[in-house]
């Protein structure tokens, strides 16, 4: 069986500076795979390339069996790849409902969209209570919920989350992580980029550690959690 996402020797450059220097990994349907690593390692660059916002300078991306190289971002969503970007990027002057509707921009099934919006409100009740409010008025954690809910509205085959817990209070962080666990239990395939390596690895089936544009260690979540070098570098132990 081929993987849902297959990344082969991917390279991405900003001008002459190569930020991703040939990485390979795959994500199987139903899995949660995490990319961890220090700031500037190239995780965001990787996700932005997968969703088509950046063009790769080398390598191959196969999604659902189809090569993605050069496909524009707005067409990649249609193939079933959703991206909740770093920094959340909700549409601040649109309401919560409108943000969710935009997540379903390419869908035509009006009733299904309505149902999924209701489901997002069940997953995140606070969003339902404030549905008419401008999204910019939400707290950071609430904006993160909205960004995740919005990404789910496209009914993706693969959900990419970039630093969903960034800048959140410990309680909010826990809540977001619990939601990701819940999505996993429902069978959602997730590619998760996280600063909070402990939480991400506990959830993940597979993990990859990135350092300056390369994957330096790979393994199952639990392997990496017990790997000494990983514990030293990313889990704050010495």
């Amino acid at each position: 069986m081929t993987a849902l996402l297959e990344v082969q020797d991917l390279k991405v450059a900003y001008g002459k500076i190569e930020a991703v220097k040939g990485i390979s990994f795959s994500v199987e349907a139903g899995q949660v795979v995490t990319l961890i690593g220090t700031n500037g390692a190239g995780k965001t660059t990787t996700l932005r390339t997968l969703s088509g916002l950046l063009k790769p300078s080398g390598g191959r991306i196969l999604f659902d069996g189809k090569p993605l190289n050069g496909t524009p971002a707005h067409k990649i969503v249609a193939l079933g790849l959703a991206h909740s970007p770093e920094g959340r990027h909700i549409f601040p002057r649109l309401s919560i409902t409108e943000n969710l509707q935009l997540g379903a921009f390419l869908r035509k099934d009006v009733e299904g969209i309505q149902k999924d919006i209701q489901r997002a409100y069940e997953l995140f009740p606070i969003l339902g209570e404030r549905r008419k409010q401008a999204a910019g008025t939400l707290s950071g954690g609430e904006q993160q919920m909205l960004a995740m809910g919005r990404a789910l509205m496209s009914q993706p085959k693969l959900l990419m989350l970039d630093e969903p817990s960034m800048g959140l209070s410990p309680i909010m962080m826990q809540k977001i992580m619990a939601t990701i666990a819940e999505l996993k239990a429902q069978g959602t395939t997730i590619l998760l980029v996280e600063q909070n390596a402990q939480a991400a690895l506990s959830l993940a089936d597979q993990g990859h550690v990135m350092e300056v544009g390369k994957i330096v260690v790979s393994g199952t979540g639990s392997d990496l959690l017990t790997d000494e070098s990983v514990r030293k570098a990313y889990l704050g132990e010495d």
């Binding site: 088509g52 707005h74 991206h83 549409f91 649109l94 409108e98 921009f105």
Partner: peptide
């Protein structure tokens, strides 16, 4: 609606499937 989204955040608008 797509126009408003593009004005507020063009990259993210593309992630919604909007041809900006």
């Amino acid at each position: 609606r797509a126009m408003q989204a593009t004005a507020q955040d063009p990259d993210t608008a593309q992630l919604m499937g909007i041809d900006t």
